[in-house]
Design a protein around this nucleic acid. Structure first.
Lengths: 334, 334
DNA sequence: CACATCTATGCACACGTTAACAATAGTCTT
DNA sequence: AAGACTATTGTTAACGTGTGCATAGATGTG
């Protein structure tokens, strides 16, 4: 039905071996012959059968891009930027297969034959089993966004603990003492890191955060909203709230306005991630920027290097986060 | 290196054909034999080589999910919901390959062998060539989000013109007369539809929209911001602005606040899409909801039906949009 | 000129799987 | 009891491509 190298061979009056070599630009074939074969291939609109190639070359031309989950807790902006970053690096060379790890009932089908390499955007320690599985199968792997110790696994992430530390410190420097925290989704590593960084900042500046100034969150708008309402109901309410991501910050700000109060005049809010809308909400959100697209690009480049040079570099790459000061924090200094 | 059916055959003392049949649960094989072979396969941790299967079965187990572009103009929320919807339908049965159409330099590699089916989330008439190409190759195809006439192509979309008509009508009903428009990205079909619906509403209610009440936009925050600044500089500024998506609406609202004015007291704003944050901005955004996840699920289901039953249903499915009234529109009736 | 060397091409097989056809043994029918 | 039929398994080829080895002609070499 579709055109094969044998069809080309027949028309060119050569063996299919010669066609194969010609199309792969083997030095064994005369330039003249190559040219002739290429023209015929072109005319017949020949496309190689990748299944056949894969079978004999033992390469799948597939890269996996796995997220902890596609259903919940992964923010859209994050997801988008990650895919975009990876895609911009791999372009034509591989097909990008997107999956949620929680969609797998068994890792059985993840083999060296079906993936030339895998990128995991990991948000949770629960991803460890799949990481071990992939590493054990000897598939080139890079894990983004979460520190991983597994041998032979590349690792690219940003220093979120440090970012949160800066954000916390900034609040203190602006004169805040009563500072509350809305935590990230339980089980997500980033949630832990951000909380840790925040608390280190508080400790470092001798500020204590009482239990009623801590609320759990789910990284979504609604949980930020709910948490802030809780804070507002306190008799001694905080003057500033550190939210573990921008979406929760947005929900929190909403709650403040609904209570008839102002951000930042009555209460200051800090987010994390610097999502696209952070600059455009009112007030513009002070937040911590995390170079997601750079992380995914860097990760993809390292993965390709690893696949193609068969060269394992286990070093961890830690990219810097950056505090972006906008308008959502009030200085309490007279 | 890796386990094949021949290895299993050797251990089971049968031919590899029997193993193949057993693992595919062929009725030709005795239950007892099947059981024995399955156990051995399990023990050896056998995984079929999909390249080999593909080669002989002439199926790739791949579904393509193509977007007009991954780089620009596709909003993150939209992208996320589309992938999520499709993914939830296909689950284990296929691998989902995500691509931007503008990444293709040639459609040459898109063949029946490499994709069992394709879903295009199309935003622009410029996608027509690839649609024709895929249809010509006889690959099952469903186009989402944009009307398509090409024969044999399934089509699922929402009635955006109607949604925009409702939004425009709503503004008029609230007593607005001076109504401005921030358009969507040029070349995007949705931009045209939304504009058309809006204008039909204006015509229908006998309201004219002068040229200075029309600004181009790019579907992003910044262009909405810029357009609104333009409107605010008019001596006779509009009382309401219809923005062709929520992101531009958010940018527009920002511009209003920056000018020291209030939404909706001084100026009303309507968006389109009902993105996750629409309910959480201040004021909560009145907008048109578009069932993206439903569209993508419906599209994926139809595609699978088409692939598996080889059954072409060319009918177009038009899903309803819905006006979500929140707080960003002021009623001008006393 | 006989022999070695090099160049361009072909032959045959391999990759792992499925499927058409063949073969064998057992069961049923009349 | 012979022929037909059934149930189960095996033999062999096929899918499309790449590669080790053989081959044939050309060229060089002493």
């Amino acid at each position: 039905m579709s055109v094969t190298i044998k069809d080309i061979a027949k028309l060119a009056g050569v063996s299919h071996t010669t066609v194969s070599r010609a199309l792969n630009n083997s030095p064994l074939i005369q330039e003249e012959t190559k040219a002739r074969i290429r023209i015929i291939a072109e005319q017949l609109d020949y496309t190689p059968n990748y299944s056949a190639k894969s079978l004999v070359l033992d390469r799948s031309y597939n890269l996996g891009l796995f997220f902890t989950t596609l259903s919940n807790g992964t923010s859209a902006g994050f997801f988008y930027e990650a895919i975009r970053g990876v895609n911009s690096v791999i372009r034509d060379r591989y097909q990008l297969i997107v999956k949620g790890i929680d969609d797998y009932t068994s890792f059985h089908s993840i083999t060296k034959k079906s993936f030339d390499g895998i990128i995991i955007v990991s948000q949770s320690d629960d991803d460890q089993p799949i990481i071990e599985h992939i590493a054990a199968k000897g598939i080139p792997l890079v894990v983004l966004n979460r520190p991983v110790e597994t041998a032979g696994v590349l690792n690219v992430l940003s220093d979120e603990e440090q970012g949160a530390f800066h954000a916390g410190t900034f609040l203190v420097q602006q004169g805040h003492q009563r500072i509350a925290l809305i935590e990230g989704r339980k089980g997500f590593k980033s949630a832990q890191n951000r909380k840790d960084g925040f608390e280190r900042a508080m400790d470092h500046h001798g500020i204590s955060v009482p239990p009623e100034y801590r609320m759990p969150g789910l990284y979504d708008l609604e949980s930020g909203h709910k948490a802030m309402r809780q804070f507002l109901s306190l008799t001694d309410r905080p003057t500033a709230v550190f939210c573990c991501n921008d979406e929760m910050a947005l929900g929190a700000i909403k709650a403040v306005f609904e209570a008839g109060l102002q951000v930042p005049q009555d209460i200051s809010v800090v987010g994390f991630d610097d999502t696209v809308f952070a600059a455009y909400v009112t007030p513009a959100l002070t937040t911590v920027r995390r170079p997601i697209e750079q992380i995914s690009k860097e990760g993809a480049m390292r993965l390709l290097g690893n696949i193609e040079n068969k060269w394992h570099e286990t070093e961890q790459l830690l990219l810097r986060t950056e505090l972006i000061v906008r308008e959502s924090v009030q200085s309490l200094h007279t």
